[in-house]
Every structure is written in C-alpha cells, then in structure tokens.
Design a protein around this nucleic acid. Structure first.
Length: 534
DNA sequence: ATTCGGTGGTAC
DNA sequence: GTACCACCG
C-alpha cells in the first residue's frame, strides 16, 4: 500500500559549505603554520577570519599574491572589501559588505586574508579546486548537481531506498537523528523538539519519512567524509524537493543538517517571507509582493490563480502557485562539470579603459587565465569549449540597455588565438563609436564538446579499475568494495599521475577503513584520465 | 551599504 | 545571438 507512494517521493539534499572561502583559507593557514611559514603568529584555529578581495583604490591596491604566499594582511593594509566571514567573526558582529578595518575594530584578533591574485586580478583557482574536491566526495552519495562553487544538490532517492533495504533501522536512526527536524517543534511545543520526532516508534514512521531519515543518514556520512578527508564542514537540508532542501539547509548553520518534516511544510511556508524562496529573492519577488500586496508564502498560496496570472502571466503563475504549496518538480540534473568557464575584471572610475592598446593588454591577461583554466578543464573532463564570449560593461551602453553587452565567436584554442579573437570582437564594438570607455570586461568559454574516448593500452591496463569505478553507488555503514585496490596500481605509476587523481585514488583506498561507504562513482577524474588520449 | 568575480537560466 | 535576471562568497 505504501509501496506505491514511494515511487512518487524523492529525497533531495542541498549541501552548502560553511563560509567556504574562510574554511579554505583556514586550512591553508593550518598547513602554513605546520610548515613553520607563519613566523610565530598565533594558531589559525578558532581565530576569527575574513577573506577580503582587494580594492584598487585602497592602500595596497592589487597586490600580487600567489596562493602559496603569506596572504594575511596587516599594518593597515587590510581595509579591503570582505567577501567571506568566518562564524567566529560573525559572532563578533562582523558582516559581509564591511571593510577590513571594521572587521578589525570588532574582532582585533581577526585574520584578514586576501584572495590570491594573478595577472593583476583575483584568482579564485584555490577555491574552485577545493570546491571540486568536495563535490567529488559528495558525488559518492547519489546524482549530483553542482549549483555553485560551494553548493550542490543531491538526489538521494535511490541511495536512500537501498539504505532502507540494507541497513538496520536502528543504525540509520543513530546517525540520522543527529539532524535537526524542522517543524518538529510544532508537535512537541518545545524549542529543540527534534528529539520527539526522532523518538517515535518505528511503526509511526510513514514511508517517505523513513526515506528522508535514510537521506539524512547518507548526508551525515557524506559530511563526515568531507570533514575527515578534506577538513571542511558543510550544512545540509534534506527534503522532498530542491526548493525545500535549499530552504532547509540554511536553517541550522554551521556544520549541521536539517530534515524537513513533510507534515510541517505548509506551517513552515505559511509565515515565511516571500524573498526566502529561491527565485523570489530579488526583483520578481518584489514585484509579486508589491503587485499583490502580500508578504508571506502563505498569502501567496491563498491568492487566486487568476490574480497571480494578472501579475506575472500564466506560466510563472503556475510555478509560483506550486512553489507556494511546497511543490517543486525541478529534477536534480546530473552535472558535476561547469557549463562555462569565465573570467573578468572591473575597471571603475579613473581606471576605465579608453584605448585599444589598454584593452588589448587586459584581454591578453584575461584570455591567458581563460586558456589555463580551459586546459585544466580538458585534462580533467576530456572536453573542449567551442564558443568564446566577450562581455563588456560600458557607460556608452547605458543609453540603450543596462550598460552591458556581449559578443561571441567560435573559440579557437590557445591564449593568443583567444586574445586575438576577443580583440576583434571588441574592435568591432568600438569601431561604431568615436569615443568609448569600458568599465568591465569578461571572457568566457562554453559549448563544450567531449573528445572521443579511444582505446589504448592504458585503458586496457586499468580495465578493472574502470569497471569497479562504475559499480552502483552505495553509502552505508558497511562499505562496499573500494573502486581501486591498492595492489592494482603500481606505486611508480601512481606517482606520475596528476595530483588530483592521486588524491582520488588514495581517498578511495582510504575508504576501506572509514564509515562512509566506498564503492562509488567518482569515475570522472579516474576513468576520464585513463580513457584519455595520451 | 551592493564591491568584485563569478555561475546558471530564460526571454525575445 | 543578445539582454537580462537571480544568486553565491
């Protein structure tokens, strides 16, 4: 009877790294301390920490700082814009959109770390790679959709069913119950009432609640793996769809996860401010709120569909109606790779670009970075981009549009080629006007096509590893077989592989001793590498 | 308070 | 093909 219902329910998790850039920098500081490279400064642990992005008009400007350099700012050089604030700093009232100086005033011991720079601009490679490492771990749990550098959705439906079949309920519960149960307070009337919800007798659990519990169990294991293997904490929300999972993941931060009790979805949404729902946080949400004179999702749910349609048209009205009822059928798309790679820089005020020579210089810098990242991407995912897009911000565009425009052309690989083509696009744009100025430039690569896999000795050699890596996912208390066994790979061979892949292999071997199941996927780096034309 | 450097998606 | 939107640290 309930078996029919199972098929209609999904288990979706939204996972989000806590103050991600700060965690990456914290780990970096730890490593530098251990290597004796922080000349006697205090330990990096528990100190408030903020990450700043240079401000070209501040003292220090765009200082050239490689990831490996000492990037802790001091001596009055730290008054740049904050882009990430650790929870220790938040506890002292430090907020994003403050400057370094304000952070220091509130938290004198605060470590102020500047983002790495390269080619006279911010270089986010350090964070991108850390994000990828995390995604690789999360991908063991189920279908992953990377939503940003530090966020992902997982469809845990199948994995959760499997866990329910293979794992004792008590075992699942033991880990799942460390999650907050959102809405449970409505049942018990207590503040921290998760306990009451988790304490119910097994017979009182509906099938979809059990699936959510299994999802929470998987999530717990994945988050633990991220802490154990990478040293990063995440927060997570587990619910019946993406929208609810996203809403739920932010309820208990940092380093904890929340399950949304299905029975309490409408209670939760009823008084929720409209802008808390993804997609309603900005202009569209304001238009709805103003047009209908409503403030909460509950009010939105009670608005006649006709009125919704008047404000935003039929299609959007449908979406709004469903979302206001807690429904969202947007699938978790299997996508671990980015769809585009881009880089840009702003040139405000006096820094605006007004000559072709200057434009040429910056395009060369931008395309050099773009080319580096495309080459790394090809190495990792065995694909190449086919489309180059130049983006421009210019006050000259403001009369006709919002001040931005873009032009595209076929992408020819190579930094010089990209620079040339981007300059051609820019020249065409500029040739239409006498005087011009550019306040922002970006280049991006997209329309990726995969390179054919071909047979080769390497593939043959690692056939077993590839086969094992394709085994179905399993995240349980009893680990499945590891994709690659230690004795399958020659030590010397291992040493010659790229660092990321070495890590991957070591991690998959390490899983044998860990509580987070192995036998999974993460085939991308490994199988791509092995199936790649060498 | 909305900087700077990104991402993905949709309307037309 | 381009403009614009929403959201992230």
């Amino acid at each position: 009877m309930t078996t029919r219902a199972i098929a209609t329910h999904r288990v979706v998790a939204h996972l989000d790294l806590d103050a991600f850039y700060c965690q990456v920098e914290r780990r970096d500081l730890r490593a530098k301390t251990a290597a004796g490279r922080r000349d006697g400064r205090a330990s990096a642990e528990d100190v408030p920490l903020v990450v700043v992005q240079y401000n070209p008009f501040e003292r220090g400007g765009v200082r050239a700082l490689a990831p490996d350099d000492d990037r802790e700012l001091r001596d009055g050089f730290e008054n740049h814009s904050l882009i990430a604030v650790s929870y220790e700093a938040r506890a002292r009232g430090v907020k994003r959109n403050m400057r370094g100086r304000e952070a220091r005033a509130l938290a004198p011991a605060c470590a102020v770390v500047q983002v790495p720079t390269r080619r006279s601009k911010a270089d986010l490679t350090l964070y991108r790679e850390a994000g990828r490492e995390v995604a690789a771990v999360l991908a063991r749990g189920g279908t992953i959709e990377r939503a940003s550098i530090d966020e992902a959705y997982l469809d845990l439906t199948e994995s959760a069913k499997k866990v329910l079949e293979e794992t004792a309920w008590a075992t699942i519960l033991e880990k799942a119950r460390t999650s907050h149960a959102a809405g449970a307070s409505a049942v018990s009337g207590k503040g921290y009432a998760s306990v009451a919800w988790w304490n119910r007798d097994e017979s009182e659990w509906r099938e979809e609640e059990k699936l959510l519990a299994a999802g929470a169990y998987i999530c717990f294991n994945l988050r633990k793996a991220c802490v154990d293997e990478l040293g990063y904490t995440l927060s997570a929300g587990i619910a019946l769809n993406k929208m609810l999972a996203k809403l739920t993941s932010g309820m208990n931060k940092p380093a904890s996860q929340t399950v949304l009790c299905p029975d309490h979805t409408s209670t939760l949404l009823d008084e929720l401010p409209i802008d808390r729902i993804r997609g309603l946080g900005a202009k569209f949400g304001r238009e709805l709120a103003d047009g209908l004179n409503v403030k909460t999702i509950g009010e939105l749910a009670r608005t006649p569909l006709r009125k919704l349609e008047e404000v935003c048209g039929e299609e959007k009205a449908q979406w709004v109606r469903k979302v206001s009822l807690g429904l969202d059928d947007d699938p978790v798309k299997a996508r671990e790779m980015p769809k585009s790679i881009g880089t840009g820089k702003t040139f405000r005020g006096a820094l605006a670009i007004r000559s072709i020579a200057s434009a040429k210089h910056w395009l060369a810098e931008l395309t050099a970075e773009l080319n580096d990242r495309c080459e790394a991407d090809e190495e990792e995912w065995n694909r190449v981009p086919k489309l180059l897009t130049l983006g421009l911000s210019s006050p000259d565009e403001r009369e006709t549009s919002s001040g931005h425009c873009s032009r595209r052309c076929p992408l020819r690989p190579g930094a010089d080629e990209m620079a040339q083509d981007a300059l051609t696009l820019l020249s065409k744009w500029a040739s239409g006007r006498e005087r011009w100025s550019i306040t922002g430039m970006s280049v991006s690569a997209s329309n990726f096509v995969s390179l054919e896999k071909d047979s080769g000795d390497v593939v043959e050699m690692f056939k077993n590893a590839t086969k094992a890596a394709k085994a179905p996912a399993s995240v349980s208390a009893t680990p499945a077989a590891s994709p690659i066994k230690a004795d399958q790979i020659d030590k010397n061979v291992l040493a010659e592989l790229p660092e990321a892949i070495q890590r991957e292999i070591r991690a998959s071997m390490g899983l044998l001793d860990k509580s987070t199941g192995g036998g999974v996927k993460r085939k991308n780096e490994i199988t791509n590498y092995f199936s790649k034309k060498r």
